[in-house]
């Protein structure tokens, strides 16, 4: 009789233990906000240094609010990590609006930031949501030297129509035929561009060619620190030649209201220039993401 009672107790406790470990049970427990802080929030990042810095900022911000965080950084590319997010293994991920939208809606025609964000919010699968998009972008941009911009009074791509000299675009060879190359410039802005290939993806050779005046325009990522370092000016793409790519947090429903607010505040604070500065601290000063994130958060009083 005594034996049976012990056995029953054992069976019951092991059953409780098992169910507590299964994901289904976790949800029922974590729906209670008080317990939410005990289940770690899993934060992922792309295998891209800039994405890791943003993810680390999310992580430290949530930790300072008392959440426990599980960092799963440098996971790889979208084809690999989005299925993981959809399966619920990751709760928070710094994403880029346009490319993420193209992942879910490959034939989307949205190009401008707000259209992309609106469609992205609709296309996000159940159980997931995009938080507020940041002003910070990491996308292709047509870039000129400051000298050239001032000479012709250039701010947007429309302004290129004012340039009477022949314009030479330098970039990877695929740019010659891509819709965002000379073809798109002609169709969208009515500007004629010549093209010369420089196969280093907007790297030092391209920058050198810009400064030499061998080319007038180059496609360089808007968050690339070389823009600041070389005093280059990215021209505003008012018509949506390039797919808008704003930093946008992708979150699961496990993220509670407080955490969501904290992340939204980060997105609001992070501007284009801030992101370039963050990237430059990684590339130029070779600091780890942890230090860069901590300095930035304390600088902005977000800790």
């Amino acid at each position: 009789m005594r034996h049976r009672k012990i056995l029953a107790a054992l069976a019951l406790s092991s059953f409780l233990l098992l169910t507590a470990c299964s994901p289904g049970a976790q949800n029922s427990v974590t729906s209670d906000t008080a317990d939410n802080k005990n289940t770690p929030i899993v934060i992922g990042s792309q295998d891209y240094y800039s994405s890791e810095i943003i993810a680390e900022i999310y992580a430290q911000s949530l930790e300072s609010k008392g959440y426990s965080v599980d960092r799963q950084f440098r996971i790889g590319q979208r084809e690999i990590y989005v299925p993981e997010i959809e399966a619920g293994s990751i709760d928070l991920f710094p994403e880029y609006s346009g490319p993420l939208l193209q992942y879910w809606v490959p034939d989307t025609t949205a190009r401008l930031a707000d259209d992309v964000y609106a469609q992205l919010a609709q296309s996000t699968p159940d159980g997931l949501r995009v938080l507020d998009q940041s002003g910070a972008t990491d996308q292709n941009s047509y870039t000129v030297t400051r000298l050239f911009a001032e000479k012709w009074g250039l701010e947007t791509l429309d302004d290129l129509a004012k340039v009477t000299d022949p314009l030479m675009l330098g970039g990877n060879s695929e740019g010659a035929t891509r819709p965002d190359g000379p073809v798109g410039m002609k169709n969208l802005y009515g500007v004629d561009l010549d093209f010369t290939p420089i196969e280093d993806g907007g790297g030092p050779l391209t920058v050198k060619a810009l400064k030499d005046g061998a080319i007038n325009l180059a496609i360089i990522y808007s968050a690339d620190p070389s823009i600041g370092r070389n005093d280059l000016v990215p021209l505003k793409d008012t018509e949506g030649l390039f797919l808008a790519s704003h930093v946008v947090p992708l979150a699961s429903d496990n993220l509670d209201a407080n955490a969501t607010e904290a992340i939204n505040q980060i997105s609001q604070t992070m501007s284009d220039k801030e992101l370039v500065a963050l990237n430059s601290r990684s590339l130029d000063e070779e600091l780890p993401a942890e230090t860069i994130a901590r300095d930035w958060l304390s600088d902005k009083n977000l800790l």
Partner: peptide, 8 residues
């Protein structure tokens, strides 16, 4: 041709 083909 090789670069253009590879990248696109």
């Amino acid at each position: 041709y090789i670069f253009a083909g590879l990248k696109s």
